[in-house]
Design a binder for these strands. Structure first.
Lengths: 107, 107
DNA sequence: TCTATATTTCTATATATGTCGAACTATAGT
DNA sequence: ACTATAGTTCGACATATATAGAAATATAGA
């Protein structure tokens, strides 16, 4: 189990990635596991391409790319090219780590 | 229930506060609900004074004060003067909010 | 009141970050 | 090969941040 002591820097980097409102919005968009109204059977995050993710954020493509790179480097977002597009998604494992991080410790 | 949409900026500020390794260490020290070996009955975070929190971090008192102020302004840390000291602690409510933030949404 | 301890505020400075536009790379379709 | 679309890299710049030291404030105790 990934505890804080072994991952100080890693957690700090993840929180840094989430500290920018634009990046947080991107992350949040990736968190919705299925289209509204439907219900996912698996706890699987959905995939979005870069352009879709940036919609409504009113930032330049270069800025969008920069922010997704930051999220990727922090280990929060997976990225893979698929033809003309680059797909982005979250690993549920990382979300669980983060969720667990905020439970009060009984060391 | 405090959802993301109503608290975008607030969450970003909390993550920003946690994005610095020194602040993250301070936060983590506050997370231990009781002294090692013991077991807490209540889910109550412990109180530490500013000086105690800074031990082992090797930062100047002014820097320590600055960081705790950031954590406080982000709403993560409560502070109250008690005589010569200033006591710091976490609100379990905020920890729960953050823990919940990382669960996959079924919007 | 004087002193020691705890903490904060102020000021300065080096470094990091967010942002964009221009140029570039990758891919698909004609 | 040419063109359009998707996305990235690079360079520049304005702003934000981490840090420390010096000075100030708060409190307890002699």
């Amino acid at each position: 189990m990934s505890n804080y002591s072994d991952n100080k820097e890693r957690f700090a980097k993840m929180f840094h990635a989430l500290s920018n409102p634009h990046r947080l919005a991107l992350f949040h968009r990736l968190q919705t596991c299925c289209t509204p109204g439907t219900r996912c059977s698996t706890e699987q995050a959905e995939r979005f391409c870069v352009g879709e993710l940036g919609k409504g954020l009113h930032i330049a493509p270069s800025t969008l790319s920069h922010h997704l790179k930051e999220l990727h480097r922090a280990g929060l977002v997976k990225m893979e090219r698929s033809g003309k597009y680059v797909e982005c998604w979250l690993e549920p494992k990382v979300l669980n780590e983060l969720s667990h991080f905020f439970t009060i410790k009984n060391e």
